[in-house]
């Protein structure tokens, strides 16, 4: 493997327009994909792509954020920033997966939930919150894969999973580095500095216990040799689903609860180094 990239280089690779995105992953790793649309409440959001497919022959529900590759697609998908309709569609698909006992695989690559007028009026906050609550109690295996950039609650809304995987150069953070710098220092131009402090790379997040596994990428990034990244991810997913197929639904949700319950547990005062 090559020299590891710096945090801000990883952000650039994670956002490279040539990086494999959810339609690429679906066609490379799954067969018989059938796309499902609409939240059954009021709309359809192309910023989330989802449906039923087979993974090594096993029916699964696969869904994730979609950025699009051409400008036309970018606009149709709102550059991968979902609206409440998108999150509610995702929830509908996940509940259906539970009904038919299909594992759920989510792909995360988003600048964040869309901060727009209509999105707010239709309850962006409520839609994300509901997903977090409901995902925590799904009784089927859930695996999330951060493939590009995973920013803010808009990423976490698809990320409450039994296993959270990250491609080697993907980033996962509370906010985009630009947003972070603009909130803390009122200067979005200091984003490179923010990248260094945010602990947003896969190795950092593995150390913090936020993710479970890092999926290796070819030297320079997945866009240079996508088939290598696909093969690595395929292996990792087979391994995860094999492990998660044994426990009962109740055991899965109990373990998932504990996994998130312990995140950021504050150490007893005095035990921590000043």
């Amino acid at each position: 493997m090559s020299e590891p990239l710096s945090p801000s280089e990883r952000v650039a690779v994670a956002r490279n327009p040539g990086r494999p995105n959810i339609p690429d992953f679906i066609s490379a790793l799954f067969t018989d994909f059938f796309e499902q649309r609409g939240d059954r409440l009021c709309g359809e959001d192309a910023g989330i792509l989802g449906g039923i497919a087979r993974f090594h022959g096993r029916p699964v529900t696969v869904l994730g954020t979609r950025k699009g590759k051409t400008l036309e697609e970018n606009l149709a998908c709102n550059f991968g920033m979902p609206s409440p309709e998108g999150y509610r569609k995702a929830l509908r698909l996940m509940r259906q997966a539970e009904k038919f006992r299909r594992p759920v695989l989510t792909f995360i690559d988003t600048p964040g939930a869309y901060p727009g007028l209509e999105a707010e009026a239709r309850g962006q906050g409520e839609a994300i919150a509901r997903n977090l609550l409901e995902m925590s109690r799904l009784t089927v295996p859930v695996v999330a894969i951060v493939t590009g950039e995973g920013n803010s609650g808009g990423a976490l809304a698809l990320g409450v999973a039994d296993r959270v995987l990250m491609l080697e150069n993907a980033v996962y953070s509370i906010l985009s580095p630009e947003g972070f710098a603009s909130i803390l220092w009122k200067d979005a131009g200091r984003s490179a500095e923010a990248c260094g402090l945010m602990k947003l790379t896969a190795p950092d997040l593995k150390r913090l216990g936020v993710i479970d596994e890092i999926v290796p990428e070819p030297a320079g990034g997945a866009h240079l040799a996508p088939e290598i990244a696909f093969a690595q991810l395929d292996q990792a997913l087979v391994r995860c689903l094999t492990q998660l197929s044994k426990p009962s639904g109740a055991a899965l949700t109990a373990a998932r609860y504990q996994k998130f319950r312990q995140m950021g547990t504050v150490p007893i005062p005095g035990k921590e180094e000043p």
Binding site: I128, A129, L132, S136, S152, G153, L156, G159, V160, Y172, S173, I174, M198, K199, L200, L205, L208, V210, F260, M263, G264
Partner: peptide, 8 residues
């Protein structure tokens, strides 16, 4: 990110 995880 640990702040984010408190939402979950």
């Amino acid at each position: 990110i640990l702040s984010l995880m408190q939402m979950a």
